[in-house]
Amino acid sequence: MLLEVKDLHAGIDGKEILKGLNLQVNAGEVHAIMGPNGSGKSTLSKVLAGHPTYEVISGEVLFEGKDLLELEPDERAREGVFMAFQYPVEVPGVSNSQFLRLAYNQKAIHHGQEELDPLEFNDYLKEKAKVVEMDPQFFKRSVNEGFSGGEKKRNEILQMAVLEPKLAILDETDSGLDIDALRIVAEGVNKLRNDNNAIILVTHYQRLLNYIQPDFVHVLANGKIVKEGGKELALELEDKGYDWVKGASV
């Protein structure tokens, strides 16, 4: 199993938000985690990525059988966990290609692979950029600085393409995207999807799931998964609204 979350309780500022969450993800699967605002979707993403302000109260998270919560955020990343941010951060003064090459090489070092020099990396990056139809002029620009909402999200998926994570958590990747940007981002994710990796789509709306078909849909309410099913569950949810599941439990 790639990821196993067992009875996870976690929160922020002393407030418990996740109240006993269970989740199992295998390589080759796409999971959608849906839920209303405040259900704990974002907390789950942040806890998996290792955000320092979120506290784990109890429970376990195993990544390839190892204790993920023991690892620092950068160690998790080098092990193959990736989170696409809902609000990607701007890093002024650091070019996209500089940043991506550093990240790529850190992972390469960790796995005993060859580092790439700037020229080699540039070729690699050009190939990867096709995944999200990104113009190479973005390579020279500072990371996310002055990017539109859509460009930022595309840049997140480009990073995913470069780093080839085993587990990618896409945190509200569809938020703030117009229909064209949504299509490009979704197609990018579909191209990156394969039998060796897994993707967790964290989303409020069903819209994204028209473009990226999940194998499993989990509905989160009040810090717990209250309903689970196949992709048809998302449509049902769209139809009936979140009130339908709020009282329910698995």
Binding site: D74, V91, V94, F99, Q106
Partner: peptide, 19 residues
């Protein structure tokens, strides 16, 4: 900003230096 760089696999010292 620091967390963002960490989640891309940059060790803390490198991430701070880069910022």
């Amino acid at each position: 900003e620091l967390f963002y760089l960490l989640t891309r696999g940059l060790p803390k010292t490198l991430a701070k230096n880069l910022l």
